[in-house]
Amino acid sequence: MCDTVPSDTQSTDTVLRAILTDVLALTPERVAAFDADTELFGALPELDSQAVAGLLTEIEDRFDVIVEDEDVDGEMLETFGALCAFIDAKRAE
């Protein structure tokens, strides 16, 4: 799924789950059940276009990355695994 080797003390998976819990006000139990194929944008009513902005801001802050406008597309937000892969790629830059 996500980078499971701790980097900066926490893995991408762990931090992303915390972000989704915080930004979307989802229960930790619900987010813990997410796997790589769990659909996000379009499937989670909490993740609307307004919430995407907050989500991306938190990703930038907690992972110390910059998300450019051209980076944002439907594919990166399609599933939990796709979002993890996007973050891992940004962290590797």
Score class of each variant (00 low, 15 high):
L26P: 02
V52E: 01
K90E: 00
G81Q: 12
M1P: 00
P6N: 13
R62C: 04
Q50D: 07
E29R: 03
S49V: 03
E68A: 06
D73R: 01
C2A: 15
A25W: 01
D22V: 08
A92L: 14
K90A: 04
A85H: 04
F34A: 08
D48C: 07
P28E: 13
D13A: 05
F80V: 05
R62Y: 13
D37A: 10
Q10F: 11
E70G: 06
L40E: 07
D22T: 14
F34L: 02
A43N: 00
E39S: 07
D3V: 07
P45N: 10
F41M: 12
D35T: 01
R30Y: 10
D22I: 10
I66H: 13
L77T: 03
P45F: 05
E46A: 15
D3A: 04
D64Q: 12
A43I: 11
R17Q: 05
T57G: 01
D37T: 12
E75L: 11
D8C: 09
D73I: 11
L55Q: 08
L24H: 08
T38W: 00
L47S: 12
D61T: 03
L44H: 03
P6I: 07
L55W: 01
A51Q: 07
S11D: 03
T9P: 04
S49Q: 02
L55M: 13
C84N: 06
L47D: 14
S49I: 00
A89Y: 02
G54W: 01
I59V: 12
K90C: 09
I87M: 10
T21G: 08
C84H: 06
I59H: 05
Q10K: 10
F41A: 14
L77Y: 06
